[in-house]
């Protein structure tokens, strides 16, 4: 088909767009991986997705570009942020790697993978003629219907079964999410915010938000620094004006690799962790 159709030249404007937005997308991706704060990661990802949305529009897919911006950056990423807020993400993640050699191996394999796939794609597609989509959806000078009509025609004819199955998938996902996130309550047992807050402050040892994953907090004293997953004190948890000192701490949990986060001091198993959940569960609701 590429032989029949005349190749479309890629204009300078598109090249400029690519070379401007490509680095931005790359920077967003790298920023997402390296940001210590999960909220920052989400925002970097939004950045990348917006850039990709522009690429879709440039590549004669205006509908997909709009959907990318509305659905991905608008809906999905907001969902991410909601969950982040629910989980109580106000501090940074630990950047100490607990799996030995994981980071080095991941970097080496990542570079290798990118090199292999990139080189392979480059070699295979460097002379790929661009057919363009004017013939099927009408572009700048095309005759046929627009992009949305073309996609709709395809979607409701050739891809109709897949489309219908997709609807079932969405319903299932919605029901599944409800089932997973649902908490059974006795009728009439619903507590007010006031009661919940009072219960939390009266009974819980931990009224405030828990530290990020991988940090042990095994003492109530402000002078005891939090512990990173490798056991070293976390500098971020040093209290200002108080010298870090050794205080009575709960015995360490049995797990060396990661522990159970905040629950590590109170019990080794999920039951112990469950016990803490009951005390502070109110903030989840």
């Amino acid at each position: 088909m590429t032989d029949v159709l005349a190749a479309v030249e890629i204009g300078t404007g598109e090249a400029v767009t690519f070379w401007v937005l490509g680095p931005i997308a790359l920077a967003g991706a790298l920023g997402m991986v390296f940001a210590r704060n999960a909220v920052h990661s989400a925002l970097f990802l939004v950045n990348t997705m917006l850039a990709l949305g522009v690429f879709y529009v440039v590549q004669e897919a205006p509908f997909l570009g709009a959907v990318q911006i509305i659905v991905y950056t608008g809906a999905i990423m907001i969902l991410f942020l909601f969950v982040l807020m629910l989980v109580g993400r106000d501090s940074s993640d630990s950047v100490v790697e607990t799996l030995r050699g994981q980071r080095v191996a991941a970097t080496v394999l990542g570079v290798g993978f990118a090199g292999l796939v990139g080189a392979g794609i480059a070699r295979a597609t460097q002379d790929l003629p661009v057919a363009g989509l004017e013939a099927v959806q009408g572009g700048a000078g095309g005759a046929a219907d627009g992009n949305i009509e073309a996609i709709a025609r395809l979607l409701f004819t050739r891809y109709l079964p897949a489309f219908e199955v997709t609807s079932a998938l969405l319903i299932t996902a919605a029901v599944g999410a409800m089932v997973l996130a649902h908490i059974e309550r006795e009728p009439g047992s619903r507590q007010t915010q006031k009661e919940l807050s009072r219960a939390r402050f009266l009974t819980s040892e931990h009224p405030q938000t828990l530290p990020g994953p991988g940090i042990y907090a095994r003492a109530n004293s402000i002078a005891a620094p939090g512990r990173l997953p490798d056991g070293s004190p976390s500098e971020a948890s040093f209290a200002t004006g108080v010298e870090p000192q050794v205080v009575d701490e709960l015995p360490p949990g049995g797990h060396s690799g990661g522990g159970w986060g905040p629950g590590a001091g109170r019990g080794d198993g999920p039951d112990g962790a469950l016990g803490t959940t009951r005390g502070t569960g109110g903030e989840l609701r």
């Binding site: 191996a105 991941a106 394999l109 990542g110 290798g112 993978f113 292999l116 796939v117």
Partner: peptide
């Protein structure tokens, strides 16, 4: 990922 690299190679 290691497997994927091997397959690609």
């Amino acid at each position: 990922l290691g497997g994927a690299v091997l397959v690609a190679a």
